[in-house]
Amino acid sequence: MDALIYSAMAGAERALKAQQVRANNLANAGTTGFRADMETAAHQAVQGYGYDARHMARIDADAVQTRSGTLAPTGRELDAAIVGEGLFAVAYGDGEAYTRAGAFTLDAEGQLQLDGRAVLGEGGPIVLPATNHIEIAADGTVLVLPEGTQEMQVIDRLKLVKPEPGALRKNEVGLLVGRDGGPLPPSDEVQVRGGYLEGSNVSPIEEMVATLQINRDFEMQMKLFKAADEMAANGNRLLRE
């Protein structure tokens, strides 16, 4: 009887955690460059003597949906969006992390930043001189028109990476990092569109449908749990009699 209780309890726990993942996706449906989380589950045996037939669900919520979001023009010089597959690289701690967000800014020293983190180029953090105009080319090259000049000059090239979908996970602040923890190599295949931003790749309809299904799963697990409890109670009453 307790094996059924384990199954019902594990299923209910999985449904609750899956609902948290879906709720977080819906909350970020309007976040620029957000990548939807995908909840996956696998079974794991309960440790200990006599528990061979008991299994629990192990929830893994670090898989990332890699489909592209919708590109929207902004006309802003420092905005950029990746066309197709690829990621921008930003400094994070002693290493680097990756993102699809491209609403870049400049700090007081002219360093290109994203949410307070340095945007990385082929030579490290990108620093721009005083300029009248900035362009981000399709290959990620950053060009500026310095004050007092008439010709655009190349400053650096954005570090763009194109990893395999399964090679990424989200870290504690929501940035993407390699599963092995090391930096990813740059790719010449990634294309960029300046003056655009990419929206979230969350589909609100898909998330709502999945949430409804999860609610039904949870209700079913609770019915199983109640049935197991009633069967155990009836068995105990028979033993007493």
Rank of each mutant, 00 (worst) to 15 (best):
L4A: 15
Y6H: 09
Y6Q: 01
G11E: 09
Q19P: 03
A23K: 02
N25A: 06
L26Y: 03
G30D: 14
T31P: 08
G33H: 10
F34H: 09
Q47G: 08
Y51W: 11
Y51F: 15
D52F: 11
H55M: 15
A57V: 14
A57S: 08
D60S: 13
A61S: 14
A61Y: 05
A61G: 12
D62T: 14
S68N: 14
G69T: 07
T70E: 10
L71Q: 05
L71S: 09
A72K: 07
T74D: 11
A81W: 03
I82T: 11
G84Y: 03
F88Q: 02
E96A: 03
T99F: 02
F104A: 02
T105S: 13
L106W: 13
D107Q: 12
L112P: 05
G116T: 09
G116S: 06
A118W: 08
L120M: 15
G121C: 05
G123D: 14
G124P: 08
L128R: 10
P129M: 11
T131Y: 05
E135F: 01
G140K: 01
T141E: 03
V142T: 08
L158Q: 07
K162N: 15
K170I: 07
V173C: 01
L175K: 04
L176P: 06
L176V: 09
G178D: 13
R179A: 01
G182H: 05
P183R: 04
L184D: 03
P185T: 09
V190S: 04
V190I: 00
Y196M: 14
Y196F: 14
S200N: 06
S200D: 07
E207V: 14
V209H: 02
Q213T: 13
N215P: 00
R216W: 05
D217V: 15
F225T: 04
K226R: 12
A228L: 00
A228K: 01
D229P: 06
E241F: 00
